Amino acid sequence: MVVVPMFAHGDRLTRRDLETISDERRRYELLDGTLLVSPSPRPLHQRVVARLLAALTPVCPADCEVLPAPVDVVLDEYTVMIPDVVVGRRDTFTERALVGVPVLAVEVISPSSRHIDTHLKPARLAEARCPYYWVIDPRAPGIRCFRLDGSEYTLDAEATGEEVARLELPYRLDLSPADLVSSY
Rank of each mutant, 00 (worst) to 15 (best):
E65N: 06
E65C: 09
E65K: 04
V66A: 12
L67V: 00
L67E: 03
P68T: 04
P68D: 03
A69G: 08
P70G: 06
V71F: 15
V71T: 15
V71Q: 15
D72C: 06
V73P: 03
V74H: 01
L75F: 08
L75E: 03
D76A: 00
D76K: 05
E77W: 11
V80R: 02
I82V: 13
P83M: 06
D84G: 03
D84M: 05
V85A: 04
V85F: 06
V85C: 05
V86R: 05
V86K: 02
V86H: 05
V87H: 08
V87E: 12
V87K: 09
G88A: 14
R89S: 04
R90L: 15
D91R: 07
D91S: 08
T92Y: 10
T94L: 07
R96A: 12
R96N: 12
A97K: 10
A97R: 13
A97I: 11
L98T: 12
V99N: 09
V99I: 08
P102V: 02
P102M: 06
V103S: 07
V103Q: 09
L104R: 07
L104W: 05
L104A: 03
A105E: 13
A105I: 11
E107G: 00
V108P: 10
V108L: 12
I109H: 02
P111A: 01
P111I: 07
S112A: 15
S112R: 14
S113G: 00
S113L: 00
H115M: 07
H115S: 10
H115T: 13
H115V: 11
H115L: 11
I116G: 02
I116L: 09
D117C: 01
T118L: 09
T118V: 10
T118Q: 11
H119K: 15
H119L: 14
L120T: 10
K121T: 04
K121P: 00
R124E: 15
R124K: 15
L125K: 08
A126S: 07
A126I: 07
E127Q: 08
A128I: 00
A128Q: 06
P131E: 01
Y132F: 15
Y132S: 13
W134E: 11
V135N: 03
V135R: 01
I136S: 00
I136V: 13
D137G: 14
P138C: 08
R139M: 14
R139L: 15
A140P: 09
A140C: 13
A140R: 14
P141L: 03
R144E: 15
C145S: 10
C145V: 11
F146A: 04
F146N: 05
D149T: 11
D149P: 00
D149H: 06
G150D: 13
E152N: 13
E152F: 10
Y153I: 03
T154W: 12
T154N: 12
T154E: 15
L155S: 05
D156I: 09
D156G: 08
D156K: 04
E158N: 12
E158G: 12
E158D: 13
A159D: 01
A159K: 01
A159H: 00
A159E: 01
A159T: 01
T160W: 14
T160K: 13
